[in-house]
Simulated scan of single mutants.
Amino acid sequence: MRAKLVEAGVLTFSKAGFNGCSVQDITEAAGVPKGSFYNHFESKEALGAAALEHYWADGSCETLKILDERAGSPKGRLKQYFEDSLVAMSEKDFTCGCLIGNMAAEQSDHSPVIAAQLSAIFANWSRRIGACIRQAQEAGEIQSTTDAEMLATFVLNAWEGALQRARIEKGERPLRQFIDVLFTQLLH
Results as ranks from 00 to 15, higher is better:
residue 152 A to V: 01
residue 163 L to D: 02
residue 125 W to T: 05
residue 94 F to N: 03
residue 84 D to T: 09
residue 55 Y to P: 08
residue 67 L to Y: 05
residue 56 W to C: 05
residue 108 S to G: 03
residue 66 I to L: 13
residue 74 P to K: 07
residue 75 K to V: 10
residue 78 L to M: 15
residue 89 M to T: 03
residue 166 A to G: 06
residue 120 A to E: 15
residue 138 E to H: 04
residue 112 P to H: 07
residue 75 K to E: 07
residue 133 I to F: 07
residue 104 A to C: 07
residue 165 R to C: 04
residue 161 G to H: 06
residue 151 L to T: 02
residue 54 H to R: 11
residue 61 C to N: 11
residue 76 G to H: 08
residue 60 S to Y: 14
residue 59 G to R: 07
residue 71 A to T: 13
residue 103 M to I: 09
residue 142 I to C: 00
residue 111 S to A: 10
residue 143 Q to F: 10
residue 63 T to E: 12
residue 82 F to W: 13
residue 107 Q to G: 03
residue 151 L to C: 02
residue 137 Q to R: 03
residue 61 C to P: 00
residue 148 A to I: 00
residue 98 C to F: 08
residue 118 L to N: 01
residue 76 G to V: 11
residue 146 T to G: 01
residue 56 W to P: 02
residue 96 C to K: 11
residue 52 L to Y: 03
residue 149 E to H: 04
residue 122 F to L: 12
residue 148 A to R: 00
residue 73 S to V: 06
residue 107 Q to W: 05
residue 123 A to S: 10
residue 53 E to N: 09
residue 91 E to N: 10
residue 109 D to H: 13
residue 148 A to D: 01
residue 99 L to F: 06
residue 61 C to W: 11
residue 79 K to P: 06
residue 49 A to T: 06
residue 104 A to Y: 08
residue 155 V to P: 02
residue 69 E to N: 10
residue 63 T to N: 07
residue 109 D to S: 14
residue 149 E to P: 00
residue 90 S to A: 13
residue 97 G to Y: 07
residue 60 S to D: 13
residue 98 C to N: 15
residue 75 K to D: 04
residue 97 G to T: 07
residue 156 L to M: 11
residue 150 M to H: 12
residue 111 S to D: 09
residue 89 M to H: 12
residue 119 S to F: 07
residue 92 K to A: 14
residue 165 R to I: 05
residue 128 R to A: 01
residue 93 D to E: 13
residue 143 Q to R: 15
residue 164 Q to F: 15
residue 68 D to S: 13
residue 132 C to D: 05
residue 93 D to W: 04
residue 132 C to L: 06
residue 132 C to A: 15
residue 96 C to I: 15
residue 99 L to W: 05
residue 164 Q to S: 15
residue 115 A to W: 01
residue 124 N to Q: 09
residue 50 A to Y: 11
residue 112 P to S: 13
residue 84 D to S: 13
residue 61 C to E: 12
residue 53 E to G: 08
residue 79 K to F: 13
residue 132 C to I: 05
residue 117 Q to C: 12
residue 142 I to R: 00
residue 87 V to I: 12
residue 150 M to C: 08
residue 93 D to R: 06
residue 139 A to R: 12
residue 107 Q to T: 15
residue 48 G to F: 08
residue 91 E to A: 09
residue 94 F to S: 03
residue 137 Q to M: 03
residue 127 R to N: 02
residue 112 P to W: 05
residue 109 D to I: 03
residue 128 R to T: 01
residue 77 R to M: 11
residue 149 E to C: 01
residue 90 S to Q: 15
residue 126 S to P: 00
residue 84 D to V: 05
residue 114 I to K: 02
